[in-house]
Simulated assay, not measured.
Amino acid sequence: MDRLIYTAATGARHILEQQATTSNNLANATTTGFRAQLDSFRAVPVVAEGLPTRTFVVDNTVGSDFRAGTMQTTGRPLDVALRGDGFIAVQSTDGSEAYTRNGSLKVNANGMLQTSAGLTLVGENGPIAVPPDTEVAIAADGTVSAIDTTQTKPGPSNVLGRIKLVNPDVKGLVRGDDGLFRNQSGLPADPDQNVRLADGTLEGSNVNPIDAMVNMIALARSFETQMSLLKNAEANATKATQILALN
């Protein structure tokens, strides 16, 4: 009897956890550059004397879906999207180097080039500062240039720096609670000269809302099945107690 309870109770618990993951994916269906999180179930036997047939159900996070999202043309000079594989390096709130596909950029009040979430971009020679009264242009290789807009005739463009573009092995990346990716080794990735940007474009989320909704319904039905198994176990235990009482 307890074998059924072990499996059903742990299965129900981790179905709820996977439901939370699916809900998070669905909530980020319109988030720029978002990568869907992937989960799967696996069975883990209980290693203990007298319990060789008991099994726990575990929700195993297998990683993220790194398929490309849809490209959306915006025409905004500070919007960039990665062509193919690669990431943009940013400085996270704890000071470490992290990676994102969100190319919606802005210039803050101090003139620093940042993401729309307020994270400073990592340049190959340090943070990139944008002078006031300039028009910014970002080349395909990540080079950031500025043209003075105070002059009657546009002058030559000044190179401000180059965004650090990386392409680490996705198998070695881990997603943090802030949604950013980092190397599992903790070491910063090397710049990759083959990573290219498309200006005036943003990459959308790769979450399919329809698939996410279908998955949520399937998980809800699976949870109901686990609850039915627990109710059956309780009914069987009650009937067994009644039989023993009669004896």
Rank of each mutant, 00 (worst) to 15 (best):
R3E: 08
I5W: 07
A9E: 07
A12G: 14
I15M: 08
T21S: 10
N24I: 01
N25P: 01
Q37H: 04
R42P: 05
P45K: 06
P45C: 08
A48M: 11
T53W: 03
R54Y: 12
V57I: 14
D59G: 15
G63M: 07
S64D: 14
R67H: 12
A68R: 07
M71C: 00
R76C: 02
L82Y: 07
R83T: 12
G84W: 02
S92G: 15
D94Y: 10
E97C: 02
G103V: 06
S104C: 03
K106F: 06
M112L: 15
Q114P: 08
Q114R: 14
A117Y: 07
N125R: 14
D133Q: 14
T134A: 00
G142I: 03
G142V: 01
A146C: 09
I147K: 12
T150L: 08
K153V: 15
P154S: 11
L160P: 11
N167S: 08
P168L: 03
L173N: 09
D177I: 06
L180F: 12
F181W: 07
R182L: 07
R182N: 05
G186I: 04
D192V: 01
Q193G: 02
N194S: 12
G204V: 02
G204H: 03
S205M: 01
N208Q: 12
P209S: 00
P209F: 04
M213P: 01
F223G: 06
Q226M: 10
Q226W: 00
T238K: 13
T241Y: 08
T241I: 13
A245I: 06
N247W: 08
